[in-house]
Design a protein around this nucleic acid. Structure first.
Length: 634
DNA sequence: GATTAGGGTTTG
């Protein structure tokens, strides 16, 4: 292979690069922009590589000759660069072509033959090179996850960016900034492709063949800088189109909604957008040819992407389900169902047309959610009357406790068979009196960490201090004949950092002496205290609104959850920094604000619809049930 | 001989 005198090339590991030097490097392609015409005089290709040192290097490669740039087909390919200049830009080391730059590219697949791709007539290739490639392949196989951007048309989903290997069937000018490519890969999209309107006779290609392929052919619009490239493509050639964008469009006509899938190659080169012609020798082209040959042209085309309107007696409409069935969901979901796995998925567009109440399994992305401040999502809910109440914050809680305990403790109510009492008089607060009643258990005072105390006249900060020491605290005041509970605006029980509240509407308070009925007055549990005191305890819940989007429609669903969805107890999150961090991390995972929605994870959810009326208008609302965040996210 | 671009999605 080598026709030049053997030169002993030295390859610098990527963690040992120094600015101002010219080096030879090997690396695995992590990212690349296929060569495109720059605004200057040259073609440009940006390539990021990584090697066994796990250090990345982004390289800016220029050449007046398209073929001279590395022939990279996919991430994971292995490249060898000779005479790469290392420089520092914005504090980052980068590589750039220098005079005499040359490259070889290899497949990155373990076990594949090591065949260099290059346009150079003469190049050096030795047994050492073979070893370098094999070592990089081995390292990549355990250190780099395979990229999943190469998809077949049958596997694409609405709202997605992917790379497509296909054959060009036809092309046509649309207008100055966009150009139409008709392509196929032998498989059928889950929704029929849109049809871009073009003037008659402008299409280059075999129109009758394209018609015969029906929905096996898709329409792609390419924009701006890609128009020139598209114009130059030859019908029949094999292409890889990088970062192709799908969008689902629904078109209403009468009472039927037709869904079709749009394909766009947007302008610019961000994220490696572009087109590359694949040679016949490419192994993916081999596979593609086989798929095209065996494509079933006689198969019944899908009946059309149709959501039937208002099927009142069935969930969901059979038309839409069969379509969605075709969509092969290969991506793992960030949430999973805890039940109802037998249900078929329903697209949101179908749900939005149906009457309530019904229940559905859906697959959607979390476009946005409210409230944005997660602590605001924590509420108190009555399990009996279902009313929701804000959690009193520190300031108002202090006021509630002070108001409730404005009365001086009544000496007649101290030291009973139930409790021993002690009184403290504050020195600098006008002689405010605080009474603490230590509740006996079987006539004996328990150890403080097991002891239930009743407190009269304590401030929030005093109660906080006592709650560190004593097991349970019940704020009380002196009544006519007995100690009594404060108004239920105040917590009826405090245990450590946990504040337990009761429902004002549903509770009917019973005398404090009923604490005698507690089986175990030491280490008492909230539900028992509530029961003997006639309190319906409020439950801490997360209340959030999720805006869900599956590409067919957008739907707002409520999440009302105590601990199942996030697997974080709502009752503890306000007093636990770590839990708050966990929840913020989960929300950031399922709705990452930094990136576009297409890259968000899918959520599998179970939702129920129900009717809400304000007396005049009826509205359908949706609530999420029986859904939980997948364990690998927690 | 310098420039190009310097990864991080359109809004059609």
């Amino acid at each position: 292979m080598s026709l030049v005198p053997a030169t002993n090339y030295v390859y610098t590991p990527l963690n040992q690069l120094k600015g101002g030097t010219i080096v030879n490097v090997y690396g695995i392609v992590k990212f690349f922009k296929p060569p495109y015409l720059s605004r200057g005089t040259d073609y440009c290709s940006v390539v990021t590589i990584v090697d066994q040192t796990n250090v990345k290097l982004t390289c800016l490669l220029f050449s007046g000759n398209y073929e001279a740039l590395p022939i990279i087909y996919k991430n994971g390919d292995i490249v060898r660069f000779h005479r790469l200049k290392i420089q520092v830009y914005k504090n980052e080391t980068q590589g750039i072509t220098s005079s005499g730059f040359a490259s070889l590219t290899f497949e990155g697949i373990l076990g594949a033959p090591v065949i260099p791709r290059t346009s150079s007539k003469y190049f050096n290739f030795t047994a050492e090179d073979q070893k370098m490639v094999e070592a990089l392949r081995l390292w990549a196989s355990t250190h780099i996850s395979p990229s999943w951007t190469l998809l077949k048309l049958c596997d694409v989903q609405p709202m997605q960016y992917f790379d497509l290997t296909c054959q060009l069937l036809g092309k046509a000018e649309v207008d100055g900034t966009s150009f139409l490519l008709k392509v196929w890969d032998g498989t059928r999209t889950p929704f029929p492709s849109w049809r871009v309107l073009i003037q008659d006779l402008v299409l280059e290609g075999d129109l009758s063949y394209i018609h015969r392929l029906q929905n096996l052919a898709i329409d792609i619009l390419v924009y701006d800088n890609h128009v020139q490239v598209a114009k130059s493509l030859k019908v029949g050639s094999f292409l890889r189109i990088y970062s192709l964008h799908t969008k689902l469009k629904s078109v209403n006509s009468g009472n039927q909604t037709t869904l079709s899938l749009e394909f766009h190659l947007h302008g610019g080169t961000s994220y490696g957008r572009g087109i590359r012609v694949l040679p016949e020798s490419n192994s993916d082209v081999d596979q593609l040819k086989r798929a095209l040959e065996s494509a079933d042209l006689t198969a019944n085309p899908l009946s059309g992407g149709i959501c039937q309107s208002e099927p009142e007696d069935s969930i969901p409409s059979s038309g839409s389900v069969s379509l969605y069935e075709v969509e092969r969901c290969q991506q793992l979901s960030a949430t999973i169902l805890t039940d109802h796995q037998y249900l078929e998925k329903t697209p949101l567009c179908a749900i939005l047309k149906q009457k309530a109440p019904q229940q559905y399994r859906i697959r959607a992305k979390l476009r946005s959610y409210k409230p944005r401040k997660l602590f605001q999502s924590v509420k108190l809910r009555c399990p009996k009357c279902h009313s929701l109440k804000e959690v009193p914050h520190e300031g108002s809680l202090d006021m509630i406790l002070q108001d409730g305990a404005a009365k001086t403790p009544d000496i007649k109510l101290q030291n009973t068979s139930l409790y021993d009492s002690r009184i403290w008089t504050t020195e600098d607060q006008g002689g405010r009196k605080v009474a603490v009643h230590f509740v006996r258990n079987d006539g004996i005072l328990p150890l403080s960490n097991e002891c239930l105390i009743l407190i009269e006249g304590g401030s929030l900060s005093e109660i906080c201090k006592l709650s560190n020491k004593f097991h349970s605290i019940i704020p009380v005041r002196s009544g006519h004949e007995d100690l009594e509970l404060l108004d239920l605006s105040a917590p009826f029980l405090i245990q450590g950092k946990a504040y337990h509240y009761g429902c004002k509407q549903c509770s009917s308070l019973k005398p404090i002496q009923n604490l005698n009925f507690l089986v175990d007055k030491a280490s008492c549990i909230p539900s028992s205290v509530a029961e003997v005191l006639g309190i319906v305890p409020l439950q801490y819940v997360f209340v959030m609104t999720f805006t869900l989007d599956d590409g067919t429609g957008v739907l707002e669903a409520y999440l009302l959850d105590s601990d199942k969805f996030f697997q974080i107890p709502a009752s503890e999150i306000l007093v636990d920094d770590d839990l708050q961090k966990s929840m913020a991390m989960i929300m950031d995972m399922i709705c990452p604000s930094r990136i576009k929605i297409d890259s968000y994870p899918w959520l599998e959810c179970f939702i129920r619809s129900y009717n809400v009326t304000n007396g005049i208008e009826q509205q359908i609302c949706y609530q999420i049930f029986d859904t939980t965040v997948a364990e690998d996210l927690i």
